[in-house]
Structures are given as structure tokens and as C-alpha cells.
């Protein structure tokens, strides 16, 4: 198997306390159907759990889904935990309910993509395929 054939590995995670993961699962399935290997860790993940899973699974991409409105509190903590573990070369994207007014702040944190309700999954697939860092 050559490096170019290797599937992109993605972590889809849900930080915080909201219990609805329909959106996260739809995205996970779409990415799988596009040929990616998607690690899904379930609901109610702490920032530490998400960062540790990203490290252990050596994913190239981390997608966070959040519906509770705590994104401005939780996202920076996830990033902090990732950085503390030296995981500094992953592509980050976010989804769920993120108000328009917060999107610039979320992007500023380092989330290259923010995908709200109604996003076509093809857009997310294209985004990941285009921006995922390659592993040597």
C-alpha cells in the first residue's frame, strides 16, 4: 500500500453535554462513504478525551459537533488540550449550531471550516479532501 492510497483518518467528536449526535453521525457516514476512516467517540466528550483520542488515533482531521451553544467555551479548551499533547498538525472543522456572529471567532481559533445546518455533505467531503494534511 502506498502513501497516496492511504485513507484519510478523521476524528468526529462531540464536546460538552448535549445528547444529540444525528448531525455528527451523518457527517461520519458521509466521510466514510467518501473513503475515509472515521473514528467516532460518542456523545459527552471532555476536551481531554477528544484530544487524547486524536493523539492515540493519529488522525489528520478533527471535526467537532456542538449544539449546546458552549462552543466559545469548549473549543478553545479542546485546542489547548491538543496543543498540550503536541498535536499541532491536524485540520480542524466545526459543525452544529454556531451562530453567524460567532463564526469569525471560531475561525480565528483555527477552525478552517465551519459547517452549519443544511450544509451539503459533499462540501464537507471536498473541504476535508482538499485540506487534510498528508502523513509521510
Amino acid at each position: 500500500m502506498t502513501a497516496t492510497e492511504r485513507p484519510i483518518r478523521v476524528l468526529i467528536a462531540k464536546p460538552g453535554l448535549d445528547g444529540h449526535d444525528r448531525g455528527a453521525k451523518v457527517v461520519a457516514r458521509a466521510l466514510r462513504d467518501a473513503g475515509m476512516e472515521v473514528v467516532y467517540t460518542g456523545i459527552r466528550q471532555t476536551p481531554q478525551m477528544i484530544a487524547e483520542a486524536a493523539l492515540q488515533e493519529d488522525v489528520q482531521v478533527v471535526g467537532l459537533s456542538i449544539l449546546s451553544g458552549a462552543h466559545l467555551e469548549l473549543f478553545p479548551r479542546v485546542l489547548e488540550e491538543l496543543r498540550a499533547r503536541g498535536v499541532d498538525d491536524v485540520l480542524l472543522f466545526a459543525g452544529g449550531i454556531i451562530p453567524e456572529v460567532d463564526i469569525p471567532a471560531v475561525r480565528e481559533m483555527g477552525f478552517a471550516g465551519v459547517f452549519g445546518p443544511g450544509t451539503n455533505t459533499a462540501d464537507i467531503i471536498g473541504f476535508v479532501q482538499q485540506h487534510a494534511p498528508r502523513r509521510a
Binding site: P7, G35, E37, T41, Q48, A53
Partner: peptide, 21 residues
């Protein structure tokens, strides 16, 4: 892995969430 797309959903961590920390 899916025999069609070669992708996969890897969900085993869901059953071992507490072990992650």
C-alpha cells in the same frame, strides 16, 4: 472497511470512553 468505498466507521472507543482519560 466498507468493500465499496474502502472507508470505515471506527466506533470501538464508544464502549471504552472512560479508558481514554
Amino acid at each position: 472497511s466498507s468493500p465499496f468505498s474502502h472507508g470505515a466507521i471506527l466506533g470501538d472507543r464508544i464502549r471504552m470512553q472512560d479508558l481514554t482519560s
